[in-house]
Measured scan of single mutants.
Amino acid sequence: DYYEVLGLQRYASPEDIKKAYHKVALKWHPDKNPENKEEAERKFKEVAEAYEVLSNDEKRDIYD
């Protein structure tokens, strides 16, 4: 669930989505996790995908 990936509720505002994305993206950035790079890359891609969908009103409506 994209909301879960970003740690958000379904009623999150666009500002909340952006803030959550930056927080979680920093947490899972591969450069910040050199000891667990493969998992970090996978999680970072999930976070980016979730943000791409939830930050676009049209894609978010379809997802919801």
Rank of each mutant, 00 (worst) to 15 (best):
D1T: 14
D1L: 04
D1F: 04
D1W: 15
D1G: 12
D1C: 15
D1M: 00
D1R: 04
D1S: 13
Y2E: 02
Y2H: 09
Y3Q: 03
Y3C: 02
Y3R: 02
E4W: 05
E4N: 15
E4I: 01
E4S: 13
E4T: 15
E4A: 14
E4P: 00
V5K: 09
V5S: 09
V5E: 05
L6Q: 03
L6N: 04
L6K: 01
G7S: 06
G7L: 00
G7A: 03
G7T: 04
G7V: 00
G7C: 05
G7R: 03
G7H: 03
G7M: 01
L8Q: 04
L8K: 02
L8D: 08
L8S: 05
L8N: 03
L8G: 04
Q9Y: 07
Q9L: 02
Q9M: 07
Q9C: 10
R10H: 11
R10V: 05
R10F: 04
R10Q: 12
R10W: 07
Y11V: 09
Y11H: 11
Y11F: 11
Y11N: 15
A12K: 00
A12C: 03
A12Q: 01
A12V: 00
A12G: 03
A12P: 01
A12M: 00
S13P: 09
P14N: 11
P14R: 12
P14K: 14
P14W: 01
P14V: 12
E15Y: 03
E15R: 02
E15V: 08
E15S: 08
E15P: 06
D16M: 07
D16C: 04
D16N: 04
D16T: 04
D16F: 00
D16W: 06
I17N: 02
I17H: 00
I17D: 01
I17S: 01
I17K: 01
K19A: 14
K19S: 12
K19L: 12
K19T: 14
K19I: 10
K19G: 08
A20I: 02
A20K: 04
A20F: 00
A20N: 06
A20S: 06
Y21M: 03
Y21D: 03
Y21S: 03
Y21V: 01
H22Q: 09
H22W: 10
H22I: 09
H22P: 03
H22D: 13
H22Y: 07
H22R: 13
K23L: 14
K23F: 09
K23Y: 09
V24G: 14
V24S: 11
V24T: 09
V24F: 11
V24W: 12
V24M: 10
V24A: 10
A25V: 15
L26A: 15
L26V: 08
L26D: 12
L26W: 07
L26Y: 07
L26T: 11
K27R: 11
K27S: 06
W28S: 08
W28G: 09
W28R: 05
W28V: 05
H29T: 08
H29I: 04
H29K: 10
H29Q: 12
H29C: 07
H29A: 13
H29S: 12
P30D: 03
P30T: 06
D31G: 08
D31P: 03
D31R: 05
D31H: 06
D31Q: 10
K32W: 04
K32D: 05
K32G: 07
N33F: 09
N33C: 10
N33G: 06
N33A: 07
P34Y: 05
P34C: 05
P34F: 12
E35R: 06
E35A: 13
E35Y: 04
E35M: 09
E35S: 11
E35W: 03
E35G: 11
N36D: 12
N36H: 12
K37H: 14
K37L: 11
K37I: 11
K37D: 10
K37F: 10
K37Y: 13
K37N: 06
K37R: 15
K37P: 08
E38K: 10
E38V: 13
E38I: 10
E38R: 12
E39H: 14
E39N: 07
E39V: 10
E39R: 11
E39T: 10
A40R: 07
A40N: 07
A40C: 13
A40Q: 04
A40V: 07
A40E: 03
A40D: 05
E41L: 12
E41Y: 08
E41F: 08
R42F: 08
R42T: 08
R42Y: 05
K43V: 06
K43N: 07
K43W: 03
K43E: 04
K43Y: 07
K43C: 06
K43F: 08
K43L: 06
F44C: 07
F44T: 05
F44S: 13
F44K: 09
F44M: 13
F44I: 07
F44A: 13
K45M: 13
K45W: 04
K45V: 09
K45D: 06
E46W: 02
E46Q: 10
E46V: 07
E46L: 13
E46R: 09
V47I: 07
V47K: 00
V47L: 12
V47P: 00
V47E: 01
A48Q: 05
A48E: 15
A48N: 14
A48C: 14
A48I: 02
E49K: 15
E49Q: 09
A50V: 00
A50N: 00
A50W: 01
A50C: 02
A50I: 00
Y51G: 03
Y51D: 02
Y51R: 02
Y51F: 14
Y51M: 04
E52Q: 14
E52M: 07
E52H: 11
E52P: 00
E52D: 14
E52F: 07
V53C: 14
V53M: 08
V53L: 06
L54P: 00
S55F: 02
S55E: 03
S55P: 00
N56A: 04
N56Y: 01
N56G: 04
N56E: 05
N56C: 13
D57I: 08
D57R: 10
D57N: 11
D57F: 09
D57E: 11
E58W: 08
E58F: 04
E58P: 06
E58N: 10
K59D: 08
K59M: 10
K59T: 11
R60E: 04
R60Q: 01
R60I: 02
R60D: 03
D61I: 15
D61T: 12
I62E: 15
I62L: 14
I62K: 15
I62W: 15
I62S: 15
Y63L: 04
Y63V: 13
Y63W: 07
Y63D: 06
Y63C: 04
D64Q: 09
D64S: 05
D64Y: 02
D64I: 02
